[in-house]
Design a protein around this nucleic acid. Sequence first.
DNA 1: ATGTAATCTTACAGATTTGTAATGCAAAAG
DNA 2: CTTTTGCATTACAAATCTGTAAGATTACAT
Lengths: 224, 224
Amino acid sequence: MAEILLIEDDPAISETLSNYLKSEGYTIRTASGQRGGLELFRKFSPDCILLDVSLADGNGFSVCSAIRAVSETPVIFLTASADESCTVAGFELGADDYISKPFRPRELAARIRNVLRRYNAASKLLHCQNLILDPSKALVTKNGQEIFLSALEYRLLLLFLSNPGQLISRDRIADELWTISGEFIGDNTLNVYMKRLRDKIEDDPQNPCIIRTVRGLGYKAAES
Amino acid sequence: MAEILLIEDDPAISETLSNYLKSEGYTIRTASGQRGGLELFRKFSPDCILLDVSLADGNGFSVCSAIRAVSETPVIFLTASADESCTVAGFELGADDYISKPFRPRELAARIRNVLRRYNAASKLLHCQNLILDPSKALVTKNGQEIFLSALEYRLLLLFLSNPGQLISRDRIADELWTISGEFIGDNTLNVYMKRLRDKIEDDPQNPCIIRTVRGLGYKAAES
DNA sequence: ATGTAATCTTACAGATTTGTAATGCAAAAG
DNA sequence: CTTTTGCATTACAAATCTGTAAGATTACAT
């Protein structure tokens, strides 16, 4: 489960929130000030940060700036004041949400889930069976072993893993891979590419599990 | 500038919001109900949707579901009630934010900017000068013309465009491109790759603008 | 100016990719 | 059962990719 860093000045609020979020299944680390907060951030790389605006040794805004300088980790501001310019300032610094006290616990939990969902969706590795494709590095691995794919094989796999469980017609594949460059390719060229790709990614290319044939319609990647 | 679809029952609120957001530079389209709202959504593909929970012909939740079924376009719920279970329900349906009346205009604008910022960051095409790299299709184009890159050339370019304006050392490049597979390559192999990539992507490979050399330190991609 | 180190450029083979053609095979249609 | 259709498989040249070597050029220090 996700790990949350709570940076909060007031010990009473800190404990209340901390207990509630633990009951929701999160791992919580708490700090009462800027210095300790940033230290825990560097040490544990939490998945989300709850940040009080008013801290003993500074304010939450500078903490948020410091975090944003090195990371996109979601930051949710907590504040006693519902002051509009504070809210605006918080978002300008790159915060992901801004919640005014009094906190309603279920809403807080929903907003935490919301930022985590988006954050996880953003850093998307594409999985399928024991295969992992990392679009940010154009890297394909299976059981930790790199698989070398040619440019077109990579595109073909990317197309399938981007649409898991979805039937993709032969025409659509041909379009996505070739028609941007205006070329036209022979009728069974795609068959050959499927074979080559399967030989590289499937455990048993004769009985493909990752990309299955749907006779007469196209191909379909496994759900996950 | 971004285009916003406002789906709101109450004509007075609709007009007030609409005028304010226009003054902020957005293009606004308004609908008063579910049916009209979804029609405008399909017709104009707005960048963001402001969605009142209570509508004449249904409620905002079903509209949100319908939108989420086909798109990740950001949805911000607007509501008169500050009811906590409504808020939670909204987020469960995949909403991006949930704002209770009375709306403070500057905060609303800040929250809109926030969801737009994240949404744009998520569907990230990587730009640099007149060059565009689409990681979701592994496609590189320049002035609309496709550029054919080999697997390694693509990775090399991806590395640079993912870190615009940032100096990248030769060692780091060698690590990112080769050491995952455990291979070691000759000392000037990277020089050759840089040359090949530049020949393909730069207008004038002799005077590279997209990736510049920083002698003794490495290479650096232009900011944008 | 001269020397040195860093980077660029060219050239070259071996490996791989790319597209086509020919053949094989199995599921659906007749 | 036979034929047809759709996909799989194999084999093959042309093109391209990949890494290295050798020499040219450039920027910097002395």
